[in-house]
């Protein structure tokens, strides 16, 4: 399918006027900005920059999807249009994926102010983050005020995506380890708001105390912006604690706006996008160049001749081929 600017502009206009089919199609197109006419991306981005992007992360099974599902009506009640980007892993074996986050969010299917889109991690590395960042720009341009991005774990891709979020929710649950576990590097370091979900379970109070102790000691959470991370005990399944959590999310949004961080985050997500996009171009160029000289290199590799030297040669030629990229 070839993409031309005027058709894309019509599609964008339809999406802005509430045509959900157009929005769905545009998201597919934005998933791989590599194929997009550069002017079109600017057209989208020029209309974006106002949305509040909320990253929701945490271990598998912590209840992220259920939490989002219960948070949506709370955010809707406050008048925001809500978009959700739900990321699930791709099978490294078959390349297929079972995207099941949506299963827990189907209550909102009839609400025109909610849009849920599932994405798989696919070929990974830069691909996922690039897709997610690009889709954030579109949702933002279409006037969704709250964009929730749900992802598992702490890989590089997640860190890239979370760097684009204004507010990061880290979701955990009772019974997944002691206080040392809570201090481990990674996901527990990046939260603005910590959510202890499933607080209806027996060990909830103990887990809450571990977490609040770690927070008090400053061993948990992100303090870079001067915000003191908060901890909430909720039960998404029972719908408990959602109003307080939504209040905290809004409070964090006002805080980062007041110190000018909200705008910086928009710039930072676009910087990440530029970096990932250039990595993408380089990768493609290297793969193509490598494919071209593979047979020739095989002989050299067997003779142990110039193995590392060839690497820089391939890289150099790949860069040279990049000069032939379509003009931007």
């Amino acid at each position: 399918m070839s993409l031309n600017n005027s058709e894309l502009a019509v599609l964008l206009d339809k999406a802005r006027r509430g045509d959900l089919r157009a929005t769905g199609k545009l998201l597919t197109i934005m998933e791989d900005p590599y194929r997009l006419p550069p002017e079109f991306f600017d057209m989208v981005a020029s209309q974006a920059g106002r949305a509040h992007v909320i990253g929701v992360t945490g271990i598998p099974g912590a209840g992220k999807s259920t939490l989002i599902s219960r948070l949506i009506p709370e955010l809707r009640r406050r008048g925001a249009r809500v978009a959700v980007i739900a990321i699930d892993p791709t099978s490294p074996i078959s390349g297929g994926a079972l995207l099941g986050d949506r299963l827990r969010m189907q209550d909102h299917a009839m609400d025109p102010g909610v849009f849920i889109r599932s994405v798989s991690t696919r070929g990974l590395k830069g691909g996922l983050s690039l897709a997610a960042l690009s889709m954030i720009e579109l949702f933002d341009a279409l006037g969704y005020e709250k964009i929730l991005v749900e992802t598992v774990g702490v890989g590089q891709a997640e860190v890239d995506i979370m760097s684009a979020a204004h507010t990061i929710l880290v979701v955990t649950m009772p019974g997944v380890g002691d206080d040392v576990q809570a201090l481990k590097a990674g996901v527990m370091e990046i939260g603005d708001i910590y959510v202890l979900n499933k607080s209806d379970l027996p060990d909830a109070q103990k887990a809450y105390e571990y977490l609040s102790f770690a927070l008090d000691k400053g061993e948990l959470g992100s303090y870079d912006s001067g915000w003191t991370p908060k901890l909430f005990k909720v039960s998404a399944v029972m719908g408990q604690g959602m109003a307080e959590l939504a209040d905290a999310i809004d409070e964090h949004a006002s805080y980062i706006r007041s110190i000018g961080l909200a705008r910086l985050k928009v710039a930072s997500r676009r910087l990440t996008l530029i970096r990932l996009m250039s990595e993408r171009m380089l990768t493609v160029a290297v793969e193509e160049e490598f494919k071209r000289v593979k047979a020739e290199l095989e002989a050299k590799a067997l003779k142990a001749k110039g193995i590392l030297a060839e690497a820089s040669e391939v890289a150099r030629r790949a860069c040279k081929n990049l000069d032939n990229l379509p003009p931007t």
């Binding site: 929005t23 769905g24 078959s94 390349g95 299963l103 189907q106 009839m110 599932s118």
Partner: peptide, 24 residues
């Protein structure tokens, strides 16, 4: 090798159509 979006049981036709549209 497919990406499968599983929407679960007891869906209405409206919910399924909406999911198909949102997921393209």
């Amino acid at each position: 090798g497919f990406e499968v979006v599983y929407t679960g049981i007891r869906q209405t036709p409206e919910q399924v159509a909406r999911a198909a549209v949102e997921e393209d």
